[in-house]
Simulated scan of single mutants.
Amino acid sequence: MTRIVIAGAGRMGQAIAAGLHKQDDLELLGTWQRGDDLAPLVAAADVVIDFSLPDGTTQVLEAVAAHSTPLVCGVSGLDAAQMARLDEVAARVPIVYDRNMSLGVAVLEHSIREAASSLGSDFAIHIAEVHHVHKKDAPSGTALKLGEAAAAARGEAGTGSVTFESERRGEVPGDHEVVMQSATESLTFAHSVTSRQVFADGAIRAARWIAGKSPGRYAMSDVLFGN
Score class of each variant (00 low, 15 high):
141 G>C: 08
213 K>A: 02
190 A>R: 15
95 I>D: 00
207 A>N: 11
176 H>K: 09
25 D>R: 07
49 I>L: 03
210 I>P: 00
68 S>C: 04
147 G>C: 09
120 G>N: 11
188 T>C: 09
52 S>C: 01
23 Q>H: 06
2 T>V: 11
165 E>N: 08
190 A>I: 04
200 A>H: 03
135 K>N: 05
21 H>W: 04
8 G>T: 00
23 Q>A: 10
71 L>R: 06
227 N>M: 14
45 A>H: 00
141 G>H: 04
85 R>H: 13
59 Q>L: 15
167 E>V: 06
137 D>R: 11
87 D>F: 00
195 S>T: 12
206 A>R: 05
132 H>D: 14
90 A>S: 11
211 A>Q: 11
18 A>E: 08
203 A>I: 07
221 S>N: 12
84 A>R: 13
168 R>A: 15
170 G>A: 15
86 L>I: 01
42 V>H: 05
102 S>R: 13
10 G>S: 12
10 G>E: 10
24 D>N: 13
223 V>W: 00
7 A>N: 01
51 F>T: 10
101 M>S: 10
26 L>I: 05
47 V>M: 04
70 P>S: 02
127 I>T: 04
154 R>L: 11
196 R>I: 12
222 D>R: 05
130 V>I: 09
193 V>T: 15
211 A>W: 05
38 L>F: 07
93 V>D: 01
156 E>P: 04
196 R>V: 13
1 M>W: 05
159 T>C: 15
108 L>D: 07
188 T>K: 11
123 F>M: 10
114 E>N: 15
9 A>Q: 08
107 V>K: 14
25 D>H: 11
125 I>Q: 01
107 V>C: 13
26 L>G: 08
140 S>A: 06
183 A>S: 12
227 N>W: 11
37 D>T: 14
163 T>L: 06
1 M>I: 11
213 K>W: 00
210 I>R: 04
187 L>I: 13
3 R>I: 04
69 T>V: 07
179 V>W: 14
64 V>Y: 02
61 L>H: 03
150 A>P: 08
32 W>A: 00
192 S>G: 08
88 E>R: 14
178 V>G: 06
83 M>A: 01
95 I>L: 08
57 T>F: 04
182 S>K: 09
7 A>F: 03
93 V>L: 02
3 R>D: 01
132 H>M: 07
16 I>G: 00
173 P>V: 00
77 G>F: 08
117 S>W: 14
71 L>S: 07
180 M>S: 07
224 L>N: 09
198 V>G: 02
169 R>D: 12
152 A>V: 02
179 V>P: 04
100 N>Q: 06
126 H>L: 03
102 S>D: 10
103 L>W: 10
30 G>V: 03
12 M>W: 04
210 I>G: 05
